[in-house]
Design a protein around this nucleic acid. Structure first.
Lengths: 263, 263
DNA sequence: GGGGTCTCAG
DNA sequence: CTGAGACCCC
């Protein structure tokens, strides 16, 4: 079973790149973030024709938007709100006995101070709420996958310069600690790091603002696939598809991450 | 001597198409309209490097904008305002003894009633002012060229349906009559019609709104090159480059018109 | 730097 | 439909 996640930054603009990605990676389940489109305008038809007939879609105009597409039947589908907002950041569904959660955690704005910056406060509250929710709503014994753009690079080598990014939203100690707390709720496993040692640089996002993303290589690992302990023995591979950052025309600033499970 | 005119609808967006047009038509003088760019941001450098080192440029942010580029030296250059506005619709210059005027007449909005529609009133006033100006400022004995987007299709076969467009701005009787009055001032010659009989359909513009401009072919001849009587015997050809409407990527809705003079 | 939206204009 | 620009967000 292959599960792919991608912050696609407009599914309408990049539907052709998504088709190419499907051709090249053959996933069973696809999690998308930043689809930026209302459900009625989501390009569900070409995806269904390509074999992904099952879906949970939750999008709003212009901002955010998440979706799960699957060629396996989906059961127990749902959309979850956080922080009292219906801002389309979380959908879930069960495929072949695995509950898949597709998440888009708020980016958090520029200023890493919740007292001045409402967006950062929102991000922290989002993390706190989720951390409280998992143990009450789910069990660590369920086989589950949490995939998406978490907008936090937790490890030193998940950013191009740990020291230079300590004060930059996405790598501040408070966010990193809250993400760790979230991970501890059900003993979630950070799958990418099961296959790449934590001493090695690993990124899933490169800013559009760099003149040459490849040359400067100032990346961050913001996109993650986590699994609960029952899936630990099924882990076969987790790959960050770096090359997609250069796909023409108009690549997303995020690249896809794909998980392979032996089931 | 070859003089080309084109409503380029953003010179920054279509600089590559302009270079291709230069390669294919080898003009001496180029008149552009709807450049949509302030003079500082006009792509003068690539054009100078391509051989068009002489220019008169008058552009504003976002709207309008005209320019004359030339590989022949330009003298007596000027920018002219109309209707008390500095809206960058008229530049002129003399090249090899021919005074070239590059014009962008206001489109005139949707409603063909000057009492309700200020844009239509502006268009009519623009035509009236010019009609008064030419005989006082210039002589019919001077060799002159007037080229540009006049936003009026004067003849029955300058539109896809004379009867359906009688009430549509660009082909209403009042505009057509005012354009005729302008033409009479110095006995201007409508050069395209010296080479294509007036019974034949001839267009220089096709709306972006048609699903397939070529299939529906609902065009209008809005772009013109006129000359004064001293140049009558020098006329060698006037061609409307229809194929440019299909140039990829992102064609302009107007196509270029090119005049060849035996001098 | 580049998505999205809206408005103005053609 | 398609420019430009203003604004929001990443």
């Amino acid at each position: 079973m292959r599960i792919l996640t991608w912050n696609i930054n407009s599914v309408r603009l990049r539907i052709d790149l998504l088709m190419r990605l499907i051709d090249e990676t053959d996933p069973d389940v696809i999690c998308l973030q930043e689809t930026k489109v209302v459900d009625d305008a989501f390009p569900a038809k070409p995806l269904a024709e390509r074999g992904y007939a099952h879906s949970v879609i939750s999008g709003q105009k212009s901002y955010n938007g998440v979706a799960i597409l699957s060629r396996l039947p989906l059961t127990a589908t749902g959309v979850k709100d956080w922080c009292g907002r219906s801002d389309c950041r979380h959908v879930f569904a069960t495929a072949a006995g695995v509950e898949v959660h597709c998440l888009y955690i708020p980016a958090g704005g520029d200023e890493p101070d919740p007292a001045i910056n409402d967006k950062f406060a929102h991000k922290l509250q989002f993390l706190d709420e989720m951390t409280g929710w998992w143990p009450t709503a789910r069990s660590a014994k369920q086989p589950m996958v949490l995939a998406g753009d978490l907008n936090i690079a937790p490890l030193e080598h998940d950013v191009w310069s740990h020291t230079q990014l300590l004060g930059v939203v996405s790598h501040t100690p408070i966010e990193v600690e809250k993400l760790a707390a979230l991970r501890r709720t059900l003993g979630w496993i950070d799958t990418a790091r099961r296959f790449v040692p934590s001493e090695e640089k690993l990124y899933s996002w490169w800013s559009y603002r760099a003149r040459d993303w490849q040359a400067s290589n100032r990346g961050r690992r913001l996109d993650h696939i986590w699994v609960t302990p029952p899936l630990e023995d099924s882990l076969r591979a987790c790959s960050i598809l770096r090359a997609v950052r250069g796909w023409e025309p108009k690549p997303s600033d995020h690249v896809p991450v794909i998980l392979e499970l032996a089931r």
